[in-house]
Amino acid sequence: MKTIKIAHLYYDLMNLYGENGNVRFLQSRLERQGFKVQIHFLTIDDKIDFNSYDIYYIGTGSEKNEKIVLEDILKYKKEIKAAFLKNKFFLITGNALNFFGTKIQENDKETKALDIFPYISTIEDFRIVGEQRYLDRNGKEIIGFNNRNCITDIKENHLFTKIMGCGCNPNSQKEGIHEKNFYGTYLLGPLLVRNPHFCDKLVKELCRTYEVPFKEPDRDDVSYIAYERYLNNFPKKS
C-alpha cells in the first residue's frame, strides 16, 4: 500500500491553537483507508523538499512568527508553485493563508508573499475573534474558530460560504480558497477533527489520486457525534 508523506511545516512556529490535531487526525483517517503514513516535522534551517511529500500543512502563528516564517518560506517560492501545479495537497489554516497571496500589507508597508494566488492580505489593528459556521462546496456545515488580525480580498475559488461569523473580510460572504488540491482557510486549530466529513472529503480525494477504493467512515465515530452535537447545541446566528 502507498505510503503518504505529510510535511508539517514550521510546526514549532505556526502552532498556536492545537494545530497538531489536524495532521494527527488526517493520519488516522488515512490509516483507516489502508495507507501507511509518515509525518515529517520541518522548520527554519531544515531543507524542505517540495517534491518529496504528498501533503503540506501549515497552521497559525503569532505575528512575529508569521514574519520569521515568511522570510524563510520565500526561499521555496518556485518549488511551492511547482508542487501546487503538480496537484500536491496543501492544507493551510489560520494566518498561514497570508503566505500564499501576492503580498501582505501592514499600514504603509508591503511585504512580498509567495504569489501562488492573486490576493492581498492586510494586517489590521483589530482582531476578528469568534465561532464561525460556514458551508463547504458540498453544502455541508463547517464549524470552527477565528482569532486573527488579518483579512484578504480573495475574489474567486472560495473554499467556504459564510453562515455565521466573518468571511475573508468583514464584508465578504465567502471564505478561504480552494484551487486544485490547495485548501486554505482562516479557520484555525483542529479544523479536520471538528469537521470529520471535511477530513474524509480530503481523504477521498487522496484515495482517488492514488487509485485506492474509498471506505466510507463509520457514522458512530465519536468525532461525528461531537460534530453533530455541536451543530445542534451551539450558536447558529452572528
Binding site: Y17, G18, E19, N20, G21, R24, V129, G130, E131, F145, N147, L188, G189, P190, V193, R194, F234
Partner: peptide, 10 residues
Amino acid sequence: QFNDLSWLWD
C-alpha cells in the same frame, strides 16, 4: 461565551 476547543489538542 466563545467555545473554542483548539486547546484540547495542546
